[in-house]
Design a protein around this nucleic acid. Sequence first.
DNA 1: ATTCAGTCCTGTACGC
DNA 2: TGCGTACAGGACTGAA
Length: 312
Amino acid sequence: MPELPEVEVVRRGLTRWVAGRTVDSVEVRHPRAIRRHTAGPADFADRLTGLRLGTARRRGKYLWLPVTGGGPAAQTAAEGIAPLVTPSVTHGLAILAHLGMSGQLLVQPQDAPDEKHLRIRIRFADDLDTELRFVDQRTFGGLSLHDTVPGDPDHLPDVIAHIARDPLDAAFDDDAFHTALRRRRTTIKRALLDQSLISGVGNIYADEALWRSKLHYDRPTATFTRPRTAELLGHVRDVMNAALAVGGTSFDSLYVNVNGESGYFERSLDAYGREDEPCRRCGTPIRRRPWMNRSSYFCPRCQRPPRPARGA
DNA sequence: ATTCAGTCCTGTACGC
DNA sequence: TGCGTACAGGACTGAA
């Protein structure tokens, strides 16, 4: 499942292979893949055509491409003629992407066979002979076009303004996170998955960071001390950086790769998916517990459950 | 305001 | 073999 490290790999690939290119045509093959674009598939395709893509950005698991143009200069470019004036004024628009559970953004030769779950195809007004494809088996992900937050240097799409910065963002505020954590009346894994508190952490990296921190997923956030929060954040960053280091090997290829090809999941996970396998610290079998319609993996010895609250 | 259950989707694995 | 069911699970929605 694409979480922050995988999405970052895609971001780099997008910047390398499609930034600076101008959209020539858009084909929406499955309306659900643009369901967040409420004006519908035709509007999405029409408005995207002629726009020039900027450098890909990321916050947590969200990706976006700020776009410029749409005016006469861009139309000239769409006809394959070099524009006299490069459009530089932002229209305050960005293409937002979320990969969901199974989404992939692929840069493919135009004559490559369609993938079985190809949802959106974007062709460009140049002679590079490659196109951008959104492929998504389960259609939890999608693309959409949005206004950006006025004055935001990263051209953040307005619809994700509520998403917190992620722990690899230089502007992530550790102290503010700790304060917000203490204020919540919830448990630590729920908090880690709350994208308005900290973004980019999904089920896999939550379990991994908790295992590294020797913390049980049901520990109340109100019990967190400043050092404990700092240690947890350190482990979140470590596990994400480790994944990024492995997953980052494939972005050099033509393919903007997304899922699992790094092998990271099979080799390096300590808790997630390891039910009944020995804990790499103490040898106790890892347990799986149903949790919020999914699973939590943990070591019952290293990660002791919290003492039940009095009066419970 | 905050918390949380329900919902969307499809391929795979598994028991009978 | 085929059928039904559980599971993978991010993020939005709406209710409490």
